[in-house]
Amino acid sequence: MAEPKMAQAENIKEKIARRVAQEMRDGFYANLGVGTPTLVANYIPAGMEVVLEAENGMLGIGPSPFEGEEDPDLINAGKETVTELPGSSYFSSADSFGMIRGGHVDLTVLGAMEVDEKGNLANWTVPGKKLMGMGGAMDLVAGAKRVIIAMEHTNKDGRPKIRKTCTLPLTGLEVVDMIVTELAVIEVTPKGLVLREVAPGVTPEAVQKVTEAKLRVAEDLKTISI
């Protein structure tokens, strides 16, 4: 049964990416993290110009190269081969993080292990497990104008990833603006988490059941339309 399960996981990631893509605006400079966030690039509405940033020093990331045209000098921050577009530019890591920390990046989309009701984020390490580093994640959440978390609603064991308080080491304090999962769109506000949208056929109660933090249901609750 491995294959249908994998296909299902792909489908969930695609749904999340499609909904996040609706947050893009013409003229945005955006940084997409590895995994599901990278997929957002595939669903940016036609006719909209969004410039994607790679923190290893590039603006204007293009699609994957054709076979045989890979260039070892041209990779994204996930170390994957990419291409350049007309209008692309290259710069040093210092300039890159100057852009990021200096508030020039309109939007960053990242994955997460945990987010809590204050918008605290944990997405870089599980103590005692593998050797991991934070890479550019702490800088991105500290500097981007808007931080959207694109993740599955629960972890592999079915436990909530949206917590009252994060239990894992933090990436940033009160940094998340919005959470998009396969079940819901949740906004982080000074008064806590607000459930803005639910997936078709999903009730607010069902979302709350798999969410540890308390959700306030928006008065104008909508259904996710992708």
């Binding site: 994957s64 190269p65 054709f66 076979e67 000098d73 990779i75 996930g78 170390k79 994957e80």
Partner: peptide, 12 residues
């Protein structure tokens, strides 16, 4: 040598 760590390509 310039190895590529994650070779991602698309079909023509």
């Amino acid at each position: 040598e310039k190895p590529i760590e994650k070779r991602i390509v698309r079909k023509r």
